[in-house]
Design a protein around this nucleic acid. Structure first.
Lengths: 246, 246
DNA sequence: CGGGTCGTTGACTCGAATCAATATAGGTGG
DNA sequence: CCACCTATATTGATTCGAGTCAACGACCCG
C-alpha cells in the first residue's frame, strides 16, 4: 500500500512527522487529517478554547506567545513549515499559538490523533523525538534572551527566518540562500516581542545591519540577506564583528 | 505482583515517572534501575560523553546549562527531586547537565531504558507528558529572561526553589512552607547564570528583599521565606509592589 | 588562626528603554 | 489612478536599570 497522492505531492512531507513513519502509519494518519487555511492573526490554541487539535504546518508561520495578566507578552517560539503544531495532553498553560501569517495546516481533532497514536507506537516515538528537539529549541531561545546583545538577537532572528524560509521556499538549494527576496513573517513589534526588546531597538539594529551591508530591506515585509556568513557572525558574536569593523 | 520494597519506600515515587505507570511497568523499570550517588559539580551528560543514561532524581538539584564557545553560559533549567534526567534520542546539542549539589539518582543505561520503553507504551506516554511539561517550563523560563526586571527574576527563582525544595523536604505540609530554613542549592554566581544577570545584581536584589522583610538568609547556602505571599507578588509584578511600598 | 573563596557594597559607565517627532508604506475612497 | 489617511516604521534626545570595575567583608577550609 502506498501513500495517498495528496501526501506524495506535499511539499513538507519529507521533513514533517508524517515523513518519519512507515507508509502504513502515514496512511492511517492521512485518513483523519485534512487541509485547512487559516487567516493571519487567528488564535490556533490558547488559554480559552479547549477542543485541542493537532496539525502539521504546510505553509506560513505560527508564533507561540505567553501573555501575562499585566499585558506583557513574550513570543517564546516560532513554527515553520513541516513543524508540528499542537499540545498533546495539554495541561492548560498560559501559552497560546497564533497565526503570524496566513497558514495552510494539515490538521485533525485531538481525539482522532490520539487514536492513531495508540495504534502506531512508531508515531508516538516520532512525536517524542520532535518534542525533544522542540525542547532544545526552547532552551536555545532562552539562551538568546538571557545572554546576548540586541545586535545578536536581531541577527539571530533574521538568520533563523532566512534559514527556515529559504528551506521551505527553494527546496534543493542547500548552498547559499542569498539575494532571494525573503518575506518577513513578522512586524517590527512582533520581532521585538520575540527578542525581549522594544521595537525601536529592533529598528536601530536593522538599520545598522543594513548600513554594514549584511542585509537589505524592501518595504515592510521583505528582506534580503546579502552576506549570509556575516549575518551568522553577527548572530554568534556581535562584539567580535564590531571589533573588526573598527 | 506488587512493586519492590525499595520503591514503595522511595520518597519521590508518587511524583515521579515510575509512579504514573502500572505496577507491572514499574516493576520492569525497577529491574533495570539502581541508585547512585553523585558528587556536586559532576557533569551528568554533555557535549562530550555519549553513553547516554536516564535517571529519576531522588534528591539534590541538577542544572541544565548551555555554554557557548566564547565562554558565555546560561542555565536554562533546574531539575528537582522526582524530575526525569536525561535526553532520550539526543541529537548531541550544546546542552549539558551538571550536579548543582550532591545527588541521589535512580538510574539506568539508555539501552535498558529504551527496551522497557518499547515493551510498555504507557511508559512512553508518561514520558511524553513529562516532556510536554518540561517544554512549558522552558518557555516560561524564556518569558522570565525576556520580559522581567532583575527584581522579578530573583524573586521568581527563590520562589521556585522554596516551592520545590519544601515540597521534597516536608511532604504533607501543603499549606505555607514558611520559616523552614531552606537550603539554597545554588551559589550567587549560579543564580546569576540562571537569570541572565551578573552576580552583583543578584546580590543587590537579595539585599533589597531582605530589607523589605520578604526573606532572610543564614550563611551562604540557606535562606528563609518570611512572607511567601509577598515573594510571589514580587515575582509576578515587582513594579506594583514597589508602588505600594512608596 | 590564617588564607582564600565567595559574597556584599559603592562609584561610575553603558546599552537599551522611554519619550517624542517625523517619515514611509500601503490601503481606501474619491 | 491618484490623493489622502492611518498604520507602521524610523530617527533623535534623554533617562534609567543593569553592567562593570574596584574595594571591602564574611564565611569556610585547612
Amino acid at each position: 500500500m502506498t501513500i495517498p497522492a495528496r501526501c506524495s505531492t506535499c511539499p513538507v512531507r519529507s521533513a514533517a512527522l508524517c515523513g518519519k513513519i512507515s507508509d502504513d502509519a502515514a496512511n492511517a494518519l492521512s485518513r483523519v487529517m485534512h487541509r485547512v487555511r487559516i487567516p493571519a492573526g487567528r488564535v490556533i490554541y490558547g488559554a480559552v478554547e479547549q477542543p485541542n487539535s493537532f496539525a502539521i504546518l504546510v505553509s506560513g508561520v505560527v508564533k507561540l506567545v505567553i501573555t501575562k495578566p499585566d499585558g506583557r507578552q513574550q513570543i517564546v517560539g516560532l513554527q515553520f513549515p513541516s513543524d508540528f503544531v499542537g499540545r498533546p495532553f495539554a495541561d492548560g498553560s498560559t501559552l497560546s499559538a497564533e497565526a503570524a501569517t496566513t497558514l495552510e495546516l494539515c490538521c485533525c481533532s485531538g481525539r482522532a490523533f490520539e487514536n492513531v497514536l495508540r495504534d502506531y507506537p512508531e508515531l508516538e516515538r516520532a512525536l517524542l523525538k520532535r518534542l525533544v528537539s522542540d525542547l532544545d529549541g526552547a532552551r536555545n531561545w532562552a539562551f538568546l534572551l538571557g545572554r546576548t546583545t540586541a545586535q545578536e538577537k536581531v541577527a539571530s532572528l533574521l538568520y533563523v527566518i532566512a534559514d527556515r524560509m529559504a528551506r521551505s521556499v527553494v527546496r534543493g538549494c542547500q548552498e547559499r540562500p542569498c539575494a532571494l527576496g525573503l518575506s518577513l513573517p513578522l512586524s517590527r513589534m512582533e520581532m521585538a516581542e520575540c527578542l525581549g526588546l522594544r521595537l525601536e531597538t529592533v529598528c536601530r539594529q536593522i538599520t545598522q545591519l543594513k548600513s554594514r551591508g549584511v542585509i537589505s530591506t524592501m518595504g515592510r515585509r521583505a528582506f534580503d540577506v546579502l552576506d549570509m556568513h556575516e549575518l551568522k557572525q553577527c548572530a554568534a558574536n556581535a562584539t567580535a564583528v564590531l571589533d573588526e569593523a573598527v
